[in-house]
Amino acid sequence: MSVLVLAEHNGLVLDDATARAVTAAILVDPDVHVLVAGRDCGAVAARAAMLAGVAKVLIADDGDLADQLCEPLAGLIAGLGERYDAFVAPATTSGKSVMPRVAALLDVMQISDVIAVEAPDRFRRPIYAGNIIQTVRSRDSKKVLTIRTSAFSPAPSEHAKPIEPVNFQRGPHLSSFVAKVMARSDRPELTSARIVVSGGRGLGSAENFEAVLAPLADALGAALGASRAAVDAGFVSNDLQVGQTGKIVAPDLYIACGISGAIQHLAGMKDSKVIVAINKDPEAPIFQVADYGLVADLFEAVPEIRAAMPAG
């Protein structure tokens, strides 16, 4: 039988996380289908149909699915339970919300945050904030997985595959959408950016984040990230938090400025290819994971780096 991947999208654009989930799904079973659920999301389905390795796209088009509420969405997926052996979603906030609900409806244990597929029933996943890696074998006949997107590269594009409508049965209206506030940013998205410039409590204020860190990020074409302390202090909005309980990132280059390196923060960035730490405290634990450490006042060092850049 086959694998069903739940597409992550905003109604208009297919998120790159879906392409990464497809890469993981192929390792479970090469017959991969993608489910696009929403309202008027034909463009998303068309895009999903072009992902290499996808055999077909199912589209469920219904007003009740417009806001991606978990209750109808989980009902829809679980209703397709007979037809699939495995259900895969990226471990985004929506994937994390809907998939356990699906798993419970199918009475199976979900495997969260998969970082490697060893066999169709064997997976690796981090526990204890990434301090331990667990390999588990699922005894359930059906598998429900969420995929840590930073661990899988996106499936490339190729020629389009067929798109099929799928029937959706409305259920009771348990929840309803009220509002959505999206932080608007011209910078790349944190979880898929090639370079991340992150700031901690050491930045001192929201103004310094803008005046000191943002210019470096922009010069590098980087996404901005932050520690929880910086978020809690109100320097930046919470969707920039990197760490165990924030975003997990693994860019080519991660520049940590004024971040001490608590294990909860490291859990979110220690798989980055190259880590740079700028901190005035030579004892800061962040230096233990940094490939390049600069002991310096960030307010001097960051503008200097910016100035030393070719384009700067």
Binding site: S94, V178, K180, V181, N238
Partner: peptide, 15 residues
Amino acid sequence: EVDGGSQTVRLVLPA
């Protein structure tokens, strides 16, 4: 708290 921002929903009790 959702990726990229926040979302508000209204849930019927019990929830």
